[in-house]
Design a protein around this nucleic acid. Structure first.
Length: 481
DNA sequence: CGGCTTTGACCAGCGC
DNA sequence: GCGCTGGTCAAAGCCG
């Protein structure tokens, strides 16, 4: 890496000549010395310093009073000017070279990050391979004639197939219980199986698509919104099947199941935020297996698309492959350009994308300022501004800009741009679905608030009937215990 | 009476 | 192995 050493030496030398060494103040971060402003300042400072030095030299000599010496000094001054011009040209040349090296450094840095991601992905695949080989040491996924191993196919079909669809409410408890845990086991088995599929190189698209569906079912989409009602109106019909006290939250978590379709696998959890009880956190899981009424389409599309976004990130064959592996995401990560709207977390058992409708644009996630926090149902235009950014019409849109988000420079060194692009590639309706859903939520919350304001009661759709409940009792349902 | 909610119990996964 | 936690079930109760 000769150019690194050379450029460092050059920049430090010039800076020291100018009397300030910015690199020293920045803990030796080489990139700090390459900013455009620094380059400009570097030229200006250096040039002025040289001029002053030469003039000082000239004035010093005039104090001697010798005319001959002055003439000689004049010649020397001319030489000095020539030298200065040469030096300036040299500086300009070095500046251009610095710029080029800066670009190179950026490229190398990003390549390094990409390679790290690939290494982690490869290691993960190797681990999966080892597990699969241990479990099925003698099996091969593809026969000699290239036909996919039927046994393997059936194994995947056991958990990819109609098991969930055959389930109905009120059935055998053990069957149902095992169903949920089977899903977890299936998910793990799926990982092994998909790694086998990937090994054979794209010849088993059926399996990968089915695997994708299962992963989709486990991907979660969480929506944070301020709401007085105990549920945001998403247009679907839900039946509550459980309530549980969750650790670290005084408010209970309610479990709902979609009842619009027979054995629809979609479930959602509703819980009030521990820090701010006015914030309702709704987490969706799975996608509907039935037709939806128009009012339910936006949210359903959003959850499905957002899940696709997660899966697309993990499926991506780009250098950022494996971007959403839990091992990489150890904590929630805000999407650049959408620091206050969407975060992705894979620290949970399943990858989760969170759409936060409670924060104003530009605020930091999970702030402690509970007061003066513009809420979703009172800040529609700001949210739509965020949506415009998401859709690529804003100045910081992360879909169209390659500029790194400097405000989030402390984020893990991953590029959610790839996720977003992959998501849009896999589901072109994502952007529009998100926009429609957000506006739907805003409208729903407006309606909800209006209902509360009108008569102190909130309305909700339950099993096709619109019922009216005392809103206070609704809240007590979630806040009691 | 049908359908929904409530709530105690059960189960699996996970960490120690 | 044990305890904790999240997720789910299903009987009992409630409501229109």
């Amino acid at each position: 890496m000769d150019f690194f050493q050379g450029s460092t030496f050059f920049s430090q030398g010039i800076l020291k000549e100018g009397g300030t060494n910015k690199a020293d103040n920045n803990g030796g971060d080489i990139r700090d010395g390459y900013g455009d402003d620094d380059d400009l300042k570097l030229q200006l400072d250096t040039g002025l310093k040289l001029q002053v030095a030469r003039n000082f030299d000239f004035v010093e000599k005039t104090t001697v009073g010798d005319e001959v010496e002055m003439l000689e000094s004049h010649d020397e001054n001319q030489n000095a000017k020539d030298e200065m011009i040469i030096l300036r040209e040299e500086i300009a040349r070095k500046s251009v070279e610095n710029q080029r090296l800066k670009t190179l450094l950026d490229q190398v840095t990003s390549s390094h990050q990409a390679l790290q991601m690939q290494i982690m992905t490869i290691r993960q695949h190797q681990l999966d391979q080892n597990k699969s080989i241990k479990v099925h040491p003698t099996e091969t996924l593809i026969n000699d004639d290239g036909v996919i191993n039927e046994k393997r196919k059936q194994q995947m079909g056991q958990f990819l197939g109609p098991k969930q669809e055959n389930n109905t409410d009120g059935g055998d408890k053990r069957r149902s219980n095992s169903n949920s845990s089977d899903n977890n086991r299936d998910y793990e088995q799926l990982n092994k199986s998909t790694s086998n599929v990937q090994r054979v190189g794209g010849t088993a698209t059926v399996e990968t698509e089915e695997a994708h569906e299962v992963t989709m079912r486990r991907a979660r989409v969480s929506v944070r919104a301020r709401s007085e009602a105990n549920m945001i109106s998403d247009g679907c019909q839900w039946r509550k099947y459980g309530q549980k006290m969750a650790k670290g939250n005084p408010c209970p978590r309610a479990y709902y199941r979609c009842t619009m379709g027979v054995s629809c696998p979609v479930r959602k959890q509703v819980q009030r935020c521990a820090e701010d009880n006015s914030i309702l956190i709704t987490t969706y899981e799975g996608h509907h297996n039935h037709n939806l009424p128009p009012e339910a389409v936006p949210m359903a599309s959003t959850t499905t698309s957002a899940a696709s976004m997660l899966i697309a990130g993990s499926k991506s064959s780009s250098p950022m492959d494996g971007l959403l592996c839990p091992s990489i995401f150890s904590q929630s990560t805000a999407l650049p350009g959408l620091p206050s709207l969407a975060t992705i977390s894979a620290s949970a058992p399943f990858p989760t994308i969170t759409l936060d409708l409670t924060r104003p644009q530009g605020s930091q996630p999970q702030g402690n300022n509970n007061s003066n926090m513009p809420c979703a149902n009172a800040n529609g235009p700001a949210l739509m501004g965020l949506m415009q950014q998401l859709l690529g019409h804003g100045p910081n849109n992360f879909l169209g800009s390659n500029e790194p988000n400097r405000e989030n420079s402390n984020l893990p060194s991953v590029d959610p741009l790839s996720i977003a692009k992959a998501a849009l590639a896999s589901d072109p309706n994502l952007a529009s679905a998100l926009a429609t859903a957000i506006s739907s939520i805003i409208k729903g919350n407006y309606d909800s608030i209006n209902n509360v304001n009108n008569n102190g009661k909130s309305s909700e759709i339950v099993m096709g009937k619109q019922i009216s409940k005392d809103n206070n009792s609704d809240l007590s349902n979630l806040s009691e215990n």
